[in-house]
Design a protein around this nucleic acid. Structure first.
Length: 211
DNA sequence: CCCCAGGCGTCCA
DNA sequence: TGGACGCATGGG
């Protein structure tokens, strides 16, 4: 497993994830980036900054149509505006970001998953990048890549358990490994091109397959 | 014109 | 439990 990470690190370099100046910004971005390129999320974040509303507290009080306009570039903007505002309200009611910081991972995960619009990946992204606790984030790239490596359909829970079982629980390490998988998925092992040509994991995958 | 993106909730077999 | 579908803008 560390071989795999070292190979990715060597190919793509340290990823410095997640971009964002505050925990609030990271949490908000985690919801906005669902099924959306980060580039388009940045436009929404800039718009919220211009409105001086880039915080959980401010968004929980925003007019829904103002929020919709601000995050339009992130797609699904009506759904996301509604869910984002509701998530912010629930977090404020719960005690705000500082409350999340003092919770342990299992209870934090249960709380986040109870909020409509926050599924497993978003919950784990918030825990790992916004609160910096070591939970492994699995995304669709990771699922696709690992499914191809093992030539069988993998799901979220299987992969999360697998990675957490063989990698030491270190938030900085988990952050970069997830970021590396995203970079790998954007460049190789695509839906439209399952070819392994030039993939930096090529030999590792062959090794795993023979296992 | 096409397909895809750092998902999620719902519905249906 | 697992696959299809709606949500929607913006990039390649």
């Amino acid at each position: 497993m560390y071989d795999l990470y070292m190979r990715l690190l060597n190919r793509f370099g340290f990823r410095y994830w997640w971009p964002g100046d505050t925990r609030d910004e990271i949490l908000i971005g985690a919801i906005l980036t669902q099924q959306t390129m980060w580039r388009n999320v940045e436009l929404s974040i800039d718009a919220l900054k211009r409105l001086k509303s880039l915080s959980i507290s401010k968004i929980s009080d925003m007019q829904i149509d103002n929020l919709e306009t601000a995050i339009r570039s992130s797609g699904y903007y009506r759904q996301k505006a509604k869910r984002l505002k509701n998530a912010c309200k629930q977090i404020m009611r719960y005690g705000g970001i500082n409350k999340l910081l003092i919770m342990d991972i299992p209870e934090l995960r249960v709380f986040l998953l109870s909020i409509p619009g926050i599924g497993e990946e978003t919950a784990d992204s918030i825990i790992l990048y916004a609160t910096e606790k070591p939970t492994f984030v699995v995304d669709n790239y990771t699922i696709r890549i690992m499914s191809r490596v093992y030539n069988k359909k993998m799901d979220y829970g299987i992969l999360k358990n697998y990675f957490e079982g063989c990698i030491k629980k270190d938030a900085e390490l988990y952050k970069d490994i997830h970021a590396q998988f995203v970079e790998l998925g954007k460049n190789y092992c695509k839906k439209s091109d399952p070819s392994c040509d030039g993939c930096p994991l090529n030999q590792i995958c062959l090794y795993i397959k023979e296992d």
